[in-house]
Computed example of a mutant assay.
Amino acid sequence: MTENRVAVFRKENFNAAHRLHNPDWSDEKNARIFGKCNNPHYHGHNYDLIVQVTGAVDPETGYVFDMKILSDLIKEQVLDRFDHKNLNLDTREFRNLNPSAENIAIVIYKLLRDKIDTTLDLKIRLYETERNFVEYPVH
């Protein structure tokens, strides 16, 4: 008998400022590579976050994962930590890590992964703009 695997999704959003900058590079190289995203006074995004959890449907609850618990986890682990923050200055996660959309998605994944049963697959989709988004992990 095959198991009934279903993906469930929770969408949230948060606002954060950041600056893309590599301290090992010259100001000129940073400006050339990162453009406006290297503004020394930072810039912000309205991020849309989609957290996907995939697994078997529990025959007793009918759930893959309790969405209230997922909502609470995202609030505690992500929103409370990053919303209305300057990622470079206000968070320990990005003090020494360039806060690109790719790195933000990986950090969010790591913050949530150990809070969700490993029998369930976890995927993060992060929209930095309406047209630019990243996913992690990629299988």
Rank of each mutant, 00 (worst) to 15 (best):
135 E>H: 01
81 R>D: 02
44 G>T: 10
43 H>F: 14
54 T>W: 05
9 F>Y: 07
25 W>R: 12
132 N>Y: 11
54 T>F: 05
109 Y>L: 14
52 Q>P: 00
114 D>K: 15
109 Y>A: 10
120 L>D: 08
99 P>K: 08
138 V>H: 10
66 D>E: 07
10 R>V: 15
28 E>L: 13
134 V>P: 00
74 I>Q: 06
47 Y>T: 07
77 Q>P: 05
46 N>V: 14
139 H>L: 13
39 N>W: 10
9 F>M: 01
98 N>Y: 06
47 Y>Q: 14
133 F>T: 00
53 V>H: 03
69 I>W: 00
16 A>R: 06
40 P>E: 11
107 V>Y: 02
96 N>Y: 15
92 R>L: 08
65 F>D: 10
60 E>M: 08
12 E>Q: 11
125 R>S: 01
89 L>M: 07
58 D>A: 01
106 I>E: 06
34 F>T: 04
78 V>H: 03
101 A>T: 06
130 E>C: 11
40 P>N: 08
105 A>I: 10
38 N>H: 09
1 M>E: 04
137 P>H: 15
33 I>E: 08
85 K>Q: 11
33 I>R: 07
102 E>K: 11
112 L>Q: 01
66 D>L: 09
41 H>L: 09
75 K>S: 12
7 A>R: 04
30 N>Y: 03
6 V>T: 04
30 N>G: 07
125 R>D: 00
27 D>G: 12
73 L>W: 05
54 T>M: 07
9 F>W: 06
18 H>C: 12
88 N>T: 00
11 K>A: 04
108 I>A: 07
138 V>G: 09
2 T>Q: 15
53 V>F: 04
118 T>P: 13
21 H>E: 06
116 I>K: 03
106 I>R: 11
88 N>P: 00
132 N>T: 11
123 K>C: 01
112 L>K: 09
86 N>T: 00
15 N>P: 03
28 E>C: 13
126 L>H: 04
88 N>V: 01
33 I>T: 02
58 D>H: 02
80 D>A: 10
32 R>V: 01
64 V>P: 09
116 I>W: 05
